[in-house]
Simulated assay, not measured.
Amino acid sequence: MANLEIVRLLVLLAVSLVPTIYACGGWINQWDGPLEFECRSVHQFVSRVQSIHNNHREDRRYKMSCRNIPSYVRHCHSTSCRWTGYLNNYDDLLMYNCGRNGYINGFRSVHNNHYEDRRWRVRCCTVRGLYLHDCTHTGWTNSWDRPQYYNTPYGQITSGVLSWHKNRYEDRRWKYRICKVRKAHCTGEPIEEDFVDIPAIADRSNTAPPAVEEMSVDTSYTDVPAVEESSGDGSSADTPDISISE
Rank of each mutant, 00 (worst) to 15 (best):
E38S: 14
C39P: 01
R40P: 13
R40C: 14
S41H: 04
S41D: 11
S41V: 07
V42Q: 15
V42D: 09
Q44R: 10
V46P: 05
V46L: 10
V46F: 07
S47V: 00
R48P: 02
R48Y: 11
R48I: 09
R48K: 15
V49Q: 06
S51F: 01
H53A: 10
H53L: 06
H53F: 14
H53C: 02
N54A: 08
N54F: 07
N54S: 13
N54Y: 07
N55Y: 06
N55M: 08
H56I: 11
R57Y: 10
E58M: 08
E58Y: 05
D59T: 06
R61A: 09
R61W: 01
R61H: 12
Y62K: 05
Y62P: 06
Y62Q: 07
Y62R: 05
Y62F: 15
Y62V: 13
M64E: 00
M64K: 01
M64Q: 11
M64S: 01
M64D: 00
S65I: 01
S65V: 03
S65Y: 10
S65K: 05
C66H: 06
C66G: 10
R67V: 01
R67Y: 05
R67E: 02
N68H: 09
N68W: 04
P70K: 00
P70E: 01
S71D: 11
V73C: 14
R74G: 11
R74W: 07
R74D: 15
C76F: 08
H77M: 06
H77P: 04
H77L: 15
S78H: 13
S78L: 09
S80A: 08
S80T: 14
S80C: 12
C81M: 11
C81F: 09
C81S: 14
R82A: 12
R82Q: 14
R82W: 12
R82Y: 10
W83E: 08
G85N: 14
Y86G: 02
Y86T: 05
Y86V: 05
L87H: 13
L87A: 12
L87F: 11
N88P: 04
N88Q: 06
N88E: 06
N89H: 12
Y90E: 08
L93Y: 10
L93R: 07
L94H: 06
M95S: 14
Y96W: 09
N97L: 06
N97Y: 12
N97C: 15
N97P: 10
G99C: 06
R100I: 15
N101E: 00
N101P: 02
N101V: 02
N101Y: 07
N101C: 08
G102L: 04
Y103S: 02
Y103A: 08
I104R: 04
I104V: 15
I104F: 00
I104S: 02
N105K: 03
G106A: 07
G106F: 05
F107Q: 02
R108C: 10
R108I: 12
R108S: 07
S109H: 14
S109Q: 08
V110L: 15
H111Q: 01
N112Y: 03
N112K: 10
N112G: 04
H114D: 04
H114V: 03
H114W: 10
Y115D: 02
Y115M: 03
Y115F: 11
E116F: 03
R118D: 01
R118W: 07
R121Q: 13
R121T: 03
R121C: 11
V122M: 09
V122I: 15
R123N: 15
R123P: 09
C124Y: 08
C124A: 07
C124W: 04
C125P: 13
T126Q: 12
